[in-house]
Nucleic acid binder design. Structure first.
Length: 585
RNA sequence: GGGGGAAUGGUGUAAUUGGUAGCACGAGGGAUUCUGAUUCCCUUAGUUCGGGUUCAAGUCCCGGUUCCCCUACCA
């Protein structure tokens, strides 16, 4: 009970039991656990997929098993090569490398076709000539039983003949389907003579025009798992109703077969999908956001696509952490978005080198800087790269008479608990000097334009001044960040907030667009950054994905955006720092 | 008058399968701090409801409630 780290979720427990019983072989065999991630290549991967990927891949790794990537490309009308490429890239970025080659359901079409013929021969499937509408009507509904199709009792010979001609392309789309003969009275709608094949006269992204019939999900999926020797076929909760059908198809193929010739029967296990507050995983919604330009493409950093998160600066590790954090259950939970944010913060806190940048600059002038007649003097100071890790060293910064500081770090009439700058207040400029404000300038509107300070030469590097005659050391409450105006570089900084204002977008309003947050993007074009930020420097870590990430001290985590040019750097805010000060106010 | 699932602090999860309801996040308080960050310490609050079995129930039984999924030639 004390070993909370040993807690096993229900799928791990199933696998433990399978290993115990030797169901799939002996421990240590790679066959003991074979999982698969089976995306349809019809869109981009999003946050919801990451949970399934981490689960399937993680399980295979935990047990020394095998993790397959299989494209479920059974619908040529919706699928494109572009998506298989982006999906592969996203999975690799996540660090969920699959075992062996990438697999495709379309490689199994011939085998599936043979199995379908076998079911026809056994009298378990038939060709139906009814229209979509007739089939739908005949299916009944949850309250009323269905009716048998008038074509349900065709002879095996006729079915075999028609099925082959369907395959050969003799018929129009929608004119015929192959159905399994199960139970039109079942309370489970999936069992009311489900479709196995439909006619689709379209070009498939891999098989071209060789096929005119394409298998339906329920027929295909278990067979794909079977062919690949998948042991635990993990999917989300809405497929619970499909499991009886998944099993029926495998059993139907195996019916009448001798023990040795039976096909592999994987176990389908369902878990709850990931739902995060203030997001919506609906592909339809996401497409609308892109197509109607509510965001700037699928990789807009506000999107919850893997591409969006990557561009925003999220690390792959944060998704593994979240996946671990939310656990695996059958409960439809709504996870706070802040949990994912906490994960990146936690990850980036240890990894990201510190830098200084001023987002909303006002000028700080050190009026006693030139007392020796050397106003233009520039002094080098060392910027600490990581306060908790000395081995990461320092970087050279320069300090001079005019600096940029954050507008919100100065108040004309500050409250008592305000630890930053104000008239007659002293602060430490991080890694620089201590400065004390004695004056400020405003424009016609009363807006502060300049803050005038004196510095204490005895505080170089930000260190405490020596004790006075009585052994007392002067103290400051606050430390603020700054950039030397002389060498500061202008940069664009994009700050993102949640895309939606509602916990469950569209739930209350009925239209997710009504819940859009109008302030989800704020762009600052005149941020002042350390010049060292422009080019990659030696002390930066080797980020696997090549994305440069930093902590801008006291502000948050930022990464270099792909829009950056040699003329102008562009940064994306990944996450803010935790902030107990503004919360307090 | 259908079928399939699920309910544990504010949130997400755990409980040796009948034996002290634990962990994390959040929140509140404090310490440390050259980031109002980090780190550390303390506090906070929970078994959906009603019965029953039992020495003992989050766990088993009966009944109720609430929520999710299912009527695509999508996956």
């Amino acid at each position: 009970m004390t070993e909370s780290t040993e807690a096993r979720h229900f799928i791990q427990q199933i696998i433990d039991a399978d290993i115990e019983s030797g169901k799939w072989g002996q421990p240590g065999d790679q066959s003991v656990v074979t999982t698969r991630f089976p995306p349809e290549p019809n869109g981009y991967l999003h946050l919801g997929h990451t949970k399934a990927i981490c689960l399937c891949c993680g399980l295979a790794r935990e047990f020394g098993g095998r993790f397959n990537l299989r494209f479920d490309d059974t619908n040529p009308a919706k699928e494109e090569q572009e998506f298989v490429d982006s999906i592969k890239g996203d999975i690799e970025w996540l660090g969920a490398q699959w075992d062996g080659e990438v697999l495709f359901a379309s490689d199994y079409f011939e085998q599936m076709y043979e199995w379908a013929r076998e079911l026809i021969t056994k009298g378990m499937a038939y060709v139906d000539d009814q229209t979509v509408e007739q089939i739908r009507a005949g299916r009944g509904n949850t309250k009323a039983p269905g009716e048998h199709s008038p074509f349900r009792d065709r002879s095996v010979e006729e079915n075999l003949d028609l099925f082959e001609r369907m395959k050969n392309g003799e018929f129009e789309n929608g004119s015929k389907v192959l159905r399994a003969k199960i139970d039109m009275n079942s309370g489970n709608m999936n069992l009311r003579d489900p479709l196995m094949y439909r006619i689709v006269n379209a070009t498939h992204h891999r098989t071209g025009d060789t096929w005119h019939i394409y298998p339906m999900y329920d027929w295909a999926h278990g067979l794909e798992d079977s062919i690949e020797g998948v042991t635990h076929s993990l999917c989300t909760l809405e497929f619970e109703d499909h499991r009886p059908l998944y099993d029926w198809f495998i059993n139907a193929i195996n019916e009448g077969r001798a023990g040795g010739s039976k096909i592999h029967h994987s176990q389908q296990i369902e878990f709850s999908r990931l739902a995060l507050s203030y997001t919506n995983m609906s592909k339809r919604y996401m497409r609308q956001l892109v197509e109607e330009n509510h965001v700037h493409g699928w990789d807009d950093p506000r999107m919850i696509t893997v591409a969006g998160f990557r561009r925003r600066g999220y690390t792959p590790e944060s998704f593994w952490m979240l996946s671990e954090d939310v656990g695996i259950t059958k409960f439809n939970a709504l996870v706070d978005f802040s949990r994912l944010e906490n994960m990146v913060r936690e990850d980036l806190n240890t990894k990201a080198p510190r830098r200084m940048a001023v987002l909303d600059p006002i000028k700080l002038v050190i009026t006693n800087w030139g007392e020796q007649g050397d106003e233009d003097r520039v002094e080098p100071v060392d910027g600490v790269n990581h306060p908790k890790d000395e081995s990461r060293g320092t970087r050279p910064l320069s300090f001079g008479r005019e600096l940029w500081i954050e507008r919100e770090d100065f108040m004309i009439d500050p409250p008592k608990k305000f630890f930053r700058l104000g008239p007659d207040r002293e602060v430490r400029l991080r890694c620089g000097y201590w400065v004390k404000c004695h004056d400020f300038k405003t424009d016609a509107d009363g807006k502060v334009t300049e803050v005038h300070c004196t510095y204490d030469p005895l505080t170089k590097g930000g260190n405490n001044p020596p004790a006075d005659g009585e052994g007392k050391v002067r103290k400051v409450k606050g430390t603020i960040h700054w950039v030397n105006a002389d060498e500061a570089v202008d940069a664009e900084v994009r700050m993102f907030d949640r895309l939606y204002n509602a916990e469950r977008p569209g739930k209350e309003t009925g239209n997710h667009l009504d819940d859009l947050n109008p302030d989800s993007l704020a762009v600052v074009t005149n941020a002042k950054i350390e010049p060292g930020l422009v080019e990659r420097t030696e002390d930066e870590p080797d980020w696997k994905d090549g994305i440069r990430r930093f902590q801008f001290e006291r502000i948050g985590y930022f990464c270099v955006d792909t829009d950056s040019t040699s003329e102008k750097m562009v940064f994306n805010r990944t996450a803010t720092l935790r902030d107990s000060w503004t919360k307090k106010q």
